[in-house]
């Protein structure tokens, strides 16, 4: 075999790819599903925490800041491993899927809380005063005046952070989740051929290249002058 044939046999082996395509397609669906659940729960809880923080209740805010710092400082894989291997000892067994989902949700919650909070505080005090002076309540001001302005500022960093954390779904393979990487790794060991891994990498590109391109578009669309 020539060098290229050799390479093609190892990395682009159509026969092996065809054989394991269904498995990896299932992994693809699982990854998408996991990602959607993380994004929805992570962003919702992050926004909720930021709103609670805006009420300015001291001890509560300290708690929020601590939780946010904690999940910004801990590597996601450490959290996943801790929840998966640690919780059973407390009589609380989590599946690999649940452990991965919960970990990445907490991480996204922490990062998005920080971004939402920075967005809320960036809205000028005069906006609050103007709105309250027309008789709107605190919550009405928040909802109709402050949040819409804050969103605009937060969207680019939020998009980038969300993409980065969603890519963390691949970490689920470490705790036995058969998402794309998990599925391709087991296929690779069954077939003794790395073509499934190539297929997995391609699957990730199909999934994330549009998302990354979208992030780039958002960044230029909402670009601000530094």
């Amino acid at each position: 075999m020539t060098g290229f044939e050799n390479f093609a046999f190892s990395f682009l082996n159509m026969k092996v790819m065809a054989q394991y395509l269904p498995q990896i397609a299932q992994g693809f669906v699982l990854t998408v599903w996991l990602a959607v659940l993380i994004v929805v729960a992570g962003l919702a809880s992050g926004l909720a925490l930021a709103l609670v923080r805006s009420f300015g209740i001291r001890p509560l805010n300290w708690l929020i800041i601590f939780v946010v710092d904690l999940f910004r400082a801990l590597p996601p894989l450490v959290i996943i491993v801790l929840l998966f291997f640690g919780l059973p000892a407390a009589g609380l067994g989590l599946s690999g899927f649940a452990a991965t989902w919960l970990s990445l949700t907490l991480v996204l919650m922490a990062f998005s809380e920080e971004i939402f909070w920075a967005g809320l505080t960036s809205v000028h005090k005069g906006q609050w005063e103007a709105s309250r002076s027309t008789g709107l309540t605190f919550t009405q001001t928040l909802r109709h005046v402050v949040v819409p302005q804050a969103l605009r500022i937060t969207i680019p960093p939020l998009t980038n952070r969300t993409i980065a954390i969603t890519k963390g779904t691949a970490l689920g393979s470490v705790v036995g989740v058969s998402e794309i990487l998990g599925a391709s790794q087991s296929a690779m060991s069954f077939s003794a051929n790395p073509s499934p891994l190539m297929l997995g990498a391609i699957a990730y590109l199909v999934l994330f290249i549009p998302v990354v391109a979208f992030g780039r578009w958002v960044e230029s669309r909402f670009a601000w002058k530094r």
Partner: peptide, 17 residues
Amino acid sequence: LFRAIPPLVLLVFLYAG
């Protein structure tokens, strides 16, 4: 390209592939 590929996938590919 390298922002779209999860780092763990890249690492596994380099190490095991």
